[in-house]
Design a protein around this nucleic acid. Sequence first.
DNA 1: GTCTATACCGAGATAGAC
DNA 2: GTCTATCTCGGTATAGAC
Lengths: 229, 229
Amino acid sequence: MSRQTLSDATRAALVEAAVVEFAAHGFEGASTRAIATRAGVHQPQINYHFASKADLWRAAVDSLFAELAVETRAATLGTTTQRATLEATIRAFVRHAARRPELNRIMVRESGAPSERLTWLADSHVRTAFADVSALWESLRRRGEVVDTDALTAFYLMIGGGTLLYTNSPEARLISGCEPTEPDRIEAHADTLVALLFRDVAPRPTTRRAVRETRPSPRSTTTSSRRRS
Amino acid sequence: MSRQTLSDATRAALVEAAVVEFAAHGFEGASTRAIATRAGVHQPQINYHFASKADLWRAAVDSLFAELAVETRAATLGTTTQRATLEATIRAFVRHAARRPELNRIMVRESGAPSERLTWLADSHVRTAFADVSALWESLRRRGEVVDTDALTAFYLMIGGGTLLYTNSPEARLISGCEPTEPDRIEAHADTLVALLFRDVAPRPTTRRAVRETRPSPRSTTTSSRRRS
DNA sequence: GTCTATACCGAGATAGAC
DNA sequence: GTCTATCTCGGTATAGAC
């Protein structure tokens, strides 16, 4: 609708193509030609819609964080306790990482060395996310509801433990022959991570969202862990 | 000693420089010029000592895995039970990740998309590592000594949870102002990870290696977690 | 073994017709 | 807004003197 629809469409196509290419090959490794080809447009179009390759990269990252925010928001809307909020956040985060590994692939590529891009990432997205989780964590920690660790350690434990299987899924496939994104496996993974971080988790004390569509077959290699009596 | 010492020295310097550059910028992002400059030699020397950039990259990765193997071997030598072996492995792994984040930075850059390099990585290093940990894990799991999760999930939970704080340390510094590699913080991190994965961890049931040199000051932001009575 | 010089290619970005 | 053609730069790798 409205004017400029066609232009917006190619812009959106470029952003999505950029997400895929940057996640797979990194900023330097991804070529604007490959991005344009994937988007079905010609290479100079990139410099028409974006000021530079770096500008396209930022648009791609913004898009990925927006997606994550939408899902996290939806998952935490019904929660009433801090504990339920954190648990819902973790579950949404793991599911998102599995479905959209591109976000964490880009993050991990950029977070290992100081750079303009990393500074921008920290300023635009990561610092506030850490502040939010940190406040939640420390509050729960004071009440003894979560494991006794500082928020920084907990933050990277959650992210690393909750995403590496998906950011590294091509590697995981090669070494195990398993498919990491199999739905039951994702749920079991989220269950495990939640069970690890919360102390004395009751069988399932929180908003167990209706999202989980099927989950019929009892997994063989995977056993949903609801540990500790 | 012996002949060829000088040649070996520049070769070693190139490998170490390659480790740093590849970890910081990725395979495509790192330039052979920058590697040569860092090693203090001229760029064409690379193609004299190595067949190609890819060949240098493999040498750098081999070197990093060799370092890890040495430390893991040393840490597990005295252990008598499987439980002690796994715990010592995890502690050695976390310490290594903190001191040598380059290994995990390179790994995570390559493991997100199929490629010749990833295939080589899986064949040369990762598959056997996973097989070893997997056997250990499943055995302990059958005896109820660790959390009830499949080996693949556990493998990536350990690696992701144990390393992301260090692979992403530049990001962590930006968002928290803390120094992730502060020794007490590393130990607390290892303590937490071990406590999470083992069920009902007794205060400290294993070979606590004499390596930990000092550790005097009681940390403020970090409380070494030896949880669960 | 190490240097200088350079070939060769693919990258990002721009010019200007349509 | 989108195309074709092209500029410029930085990359890896090689040639050949020392």
